[in-house]
Design a protein around this nucleic acid. Structure first.
Length: 202
DNA sequence: TGCCAGGCCCTCTTTAGGGCCTT
């Protein structure tokens, strides 16, 4: 059974390389179940903008004395192993992952799958495909007390969303386990062609 | 001084523009 890693970064802004990561949450999921978690606050070495503190609840005081991203990234890489990574709007997390690995002196790229691209194709009626809105729209059960825009909480919400998307795919493709290759192909398929493609595969 | 991302995707498109999504 394939193991996926679901990951989420909180950062000081949107620009990988210029802005820095301040928190990472990651979970390993095997057979739909969370089997390991990784959750760490980091001191980015720059001030956290007030907007980011308002959004995430992460303040400069909270990261003071925490390890630097350069120290955490090698441990994160070890945690992730060779598993395919999943993130919501994965292009964002992939860019920060690559930039921070570079800053840590360990240039390292890896494959990501995107729950947002897949949700846009499999849940077209949602209208809004933000992570929190999708969780609400689909009525997904998530662990109590999760605070949105904290890394581990967002990673766990992405797990819940991913489970639903995989269940939907299994229902539409009986007898076929949606592996990384199929998911990557679907994520690149134009939205208007997804229904026809799934019907042809079924 | 003023501005600053990037990939996807739709449409009043394709010799382009703008919204969505991530922080």
């Amino acid at each position: 059974m394939q193991t996926f890693a679901v990951i989420d970064f909180e950062t000081t802004g949107l620009r990988a390389g210029a802005n820095r990561i301040i928190e990472v949450g990651a979970v390993l999921v095997r057979a739909g179940e969370v089997v390991a978690t990784f959750d760490e606050l980091m001191d980015p070495g720059v001030r956290i903008p007030s907007f980011i503190t308002s959004l995430t609840g992460i303040s400069n005081a909270m990261v003071r004395g925490r390890p630097r991203p350069e120290a955490v990234m090698p441990r994160l890489r070890e945690f992730l192993g060779d598993h395919v990574c999943i993130a919501h709007n994965a292009s964002f997390d992939r860019r920060f992952f690559a930039a921070e690995m570079e800053l840590a002196g360990q240039g390292h790229q890896r494959a990501f799958l995107c729950s947002m691209l897949l949700a846009r194709r499999l849940v077209p009626d949602a209208g809004c495909h933000r992570l929190g809105e999708l969780v609400r729209h689909l009525g997904l059960a998530v662990p109590a007390g999760l605070k949105a825009h904290r890394a581990l909480a967002d990673a766990l919400m992405t797990v819940a969303l991913w489970r639903r998307l995989m269940a939907d795919l299994r229902a539409r493709l009986p007898g076929r386990e949606p592996d990384a290759g199929l998911l990557a192909t679907l994520s690149r398929t134009p939205r208007a062609a997804v229904a026809a493609r799934l019907a042809a595969m079924a």
